[in-house]
């Protein structure tokens, strides 16, 4: 038997999923919790026994900011809203909030429901491959 370990859901596969409108994650067969974004083992119990699953993409905004001074590359998108959201399956994700006016966002956005999607970010230096950003569309 081989002792090698293969990364089940790489960031590239995760990005491909987002591109097709799917939020991929891992479901643990030991503790039944979900890991997203992916990791080599379960975020809860470290088990390697996990299956790739499609999560339902429903989330709730937990916190946010409106970025007004950006890293090199994002100038054309200013101002923009970034948030942390809790997925229905448990994990939190960090993403770009879409469908809101950044200048009108207040703390009332906390607790709002959002749908997870993906978008291609601007070309950044020191970022190999085809990048994808998580988006959070306020419903």
């Amino acid at each position: 038997m081989s002792s090698s370990v293969t990364y089940k859901l790489t960031h590239k596969m995760f990005y491909e999923g987002l591109k097709e409108g799917k939020l991929l994650g891992l479901k643990c067969n030991s503790c039944n919790t979900y890991t997203c974004p992916p990791k080599i083992n379960c975020a809860q119990c470290n088990s390697l026994d996990m299956d790739i699953v499609e999560l339902n993409g429903k989330a709730e905004i937990k916190t946010f900011t409106v970025v007004r001074v950006c890293p090199e590359g994002f100038e054309g998108e200013l101002p923009y809203v970034v948030a942390l959201a809790e997925l229905e399956e448990g994990p939190w994700v960090c993403g770009r909030v879409v469908g809101v006016d950044p200048d009108k966002v207040t703390m009332d956005i906390i607790g709002k429901k959002a749908t997870v999607g993906g978008k291609i970010p601007p070309k950044l230096s020191y970022a190999p491959g085809e990048p994808m950003a998580i988006t959070l569309k306020i419903s």
Partner: peptide, 10 residues
């Protein structure tokens, strides 16, 4: 750099 930076987070 894989799951947060591309959102434009600073």
């Amino acid at each position: 750099s894989k799951y947060e930076e591309f959102s434009g987070l600073t």
